[in-house]
Nucleic acid binder design. Structure first.
Lengths: 232, 232
DNA sequence: TTTCGCTTCCACCTTTTGATGGATACCCGA
DNA sequence: TCGGGTATCCATCAAAAGGTGGAAGCGAAA
C-alpha cells in the first residue's frame, strides 16, 4: 500500500526505521505545538500511557524538554550531554519517572521549521542496552536532515490544512478529529483503536458523536461527505 | 511553509543522506514509468551525461535493470548478487560502460507502488572503495521502507496528473461501476439494491468482486482509495 | 464549588457487511 | 457447441458496525 493509510504513518515509519538501526527499548514521536504542548504522540514498543504520564507531570522537569533547545540548532541531543549522570540520578525526574519506566539512556532527535521545534523523536534505552555510541549518534545526525525534510515538505502541510478545514465546518473535538482522520483513510474501528491506543468502545462512542455532528448514518456516508471537502 | 522548492528536492535529499552514510563515488535517483522507461534522473557527484549514455545504449544489458525485479520484492540488490564477478567482467556492459566510467561495485535500492517498481536509487563505487559490506547493505535495507513511504506519500502525489479513469486501473464491468458509483456516494447495500432494482445478494456479490479487483477489505477502504482518484 | 464538556470505557443489543460456496441464465466468440 | 465471462440470485455464517444507556475521571470555566 502506499496512500498514507494512517495519518501518522509517517511517524510510525520513521520509528520503525530508527528501531531497525539500533537497539532501543522504546520510541516516541510527537509533534510540538507553537505553545510547546505535545500532540499526536506515536509510541513504539509500549503503551501510550507513558506519554500521558510524562506530559501530565514530568515534561517540565525533563532535561531534554524541547523548550530548552528553542534557540539552538542541535539535531540530536542526549540526556548525558545535558547533565552529568551523577547529578541526573539525584533528580526527581530520574527517580520518579525514568526509573519506574525502566529508562536509563535518552536521545532526542529534534525537528524544526523556520527555527521553531515542531516535532521530537525520543529514543529510550534501558540500562542493559548501554549508552549511545558516537557511531550511533552520527547515524542519527545523518538521518535527521532527511527526516526533517520529509516531515516539513510532505506530512505537516497536508495534515494541518485538513484538520483546519474540517473544524471550520463541524465543531469536532481534537479526539474526534483523530478518529475521523483515520476513518477517512479507510481504517476499520479496530485499526483506529489500535492506532490511537484506545479501546474499541471508545472509538464507537467517538464515531457515534461524529455521525451526529455531521448528520450521517454510516461511516461510508461520512467518508463520501467529508473527503470531497478536503480537496478544495 | 516548506513546499518543495525544487521538483526533485526529494531525490537530492535522499541522495545526500545515503552519501552521508557510506563512501560512494556516484549516485543516481530516477523514476521508472509504467513502460519501464526512466524519467527525472537526479545525479549526485557527477555529470548527467552518464545517465543519457546508459539509457540510450546500455540499460537493456544492465544485470540490475529494474525490469528483472518486477515480480520480486527485493529492497536492495547488488551487482554481485546477480552475477559472479568472473562472468561480469566478460560482459560488454562491464567493459564498455562500467570500466570507462570507473564503476566497479553497484547497488540498487528499489521503490515500489502496489507492486510495480516506480523508482530506483543507484549507488556506484569505484574499485578503490571496496564492495558493499553486509553492514552497509543492512543499513540500506533498513532505510528503504522509509524512503519508499516518503516517496509514495509525499513526492509522487505531486506528479500524479496522469491519473486514468477507474476502469483503466481496475477492469470493472458496467454493472460493477453502477454499484461503485452509488457506493461512492455513501449508500448502503440496501439502498444500492433498491436504486438498481436488484436483490441484496446481488449487490454483495458485485461488491465482493470489486473488493478483489481493487484490493481492499471493506467499503470504507474502497471509498477512501477511489474518491481521491476522481478529484484530480 | 459546582457544573459542563471531553474523554474513556462498559454491557447489551440489532443491523449491516463481508466471506464462502454454490446455482441459473445469458451472450459471445473460438 | 462449448467454454468463459457476466449478471443474477440463494443460504449460511462470522465479523464488524452501529444504537442505547449508562459510568467515571478530569480540567476548565462559571
Amino acid at each position: 500500500m502506499t496512500a498514507p493509510k494512517f495519518p501518522n504513518e509517517f511517524q510510525r515509519k520513521a520509528l520503525a526505521l530508527i528501531n531497525d538501526l539500533m537497539p532501543l527499548s522504546e520510541l516516541v514521536f510527537f509533534l510540538v505545538e507553537p505553545d510547546m504542548r505535545h500532540r499526536g504522540a506515536v509510541v513504539y514498543k509500549s503503551g501510550a500511557d507513558i506519554e500521558k504520564q510524562y506530559e501530565a507531570a514530568y515534561s517540565q522537569m525533563d532535561p531534554l524538554n524541547p523548550e530548552r533547545f528553542t534557540n539552538r540548532d542541535d539535531r540530536v541531543v542526549t540526556l548525558d550531554s545535558q547533565m552529568s549522570p551523577h547529578l541526573l540520578k539525584q533528580t526527581i525526574y530520574y527517580q520518579e519517572f525514568m526509573v519506574p519506566n525502566n529508562h536509563r539512556f535518552v536521545a532526542d532527535m529534534l525537528f524544526r521549521h523556520e527555527g521553531r521545534i515542531i516535532a521530537v523523536l525520543t529514543m529510550l534505552r534501558e540500562a542493559g542496552l548501554g549508552n549511545y555510541s558516537t557511531h550511533e549518534l552520527h547515524l542519527l545526525r545523518s538521518l535527521q536532515p532527511f527526516l526533517e525534510y520529509s516531515l516539513n515538505a510532505v506530512y505537516l502541510p497536508h495534515r494541518n490544512d485538513e484538520r483546519q478545514s474540517i473544524t471550520d465546518h463541524y465543531a469536532l473535538t481534537e479526539r474526534e478529529l483523530d478518529v475521523l482522520e483515520l476513518l477517512l483513510s479507510g481504517s476499520s474501528n479496530k485499526e483506529i483503536a489500535l492506532a490511537l491506543g484506545l479501546g474499541l468502545a471508545t472509538i464507537k462512542t467517538h464515531l457515534h458523536n461524529i455521525f451526529q455532528k455531521v448528520s450521517v448514518q454510516s461511516r461510508s456516508e461520512l467518508i463520501a461527505k467529508i473527503l470531497p471537502l478536503l480537496q478544495l
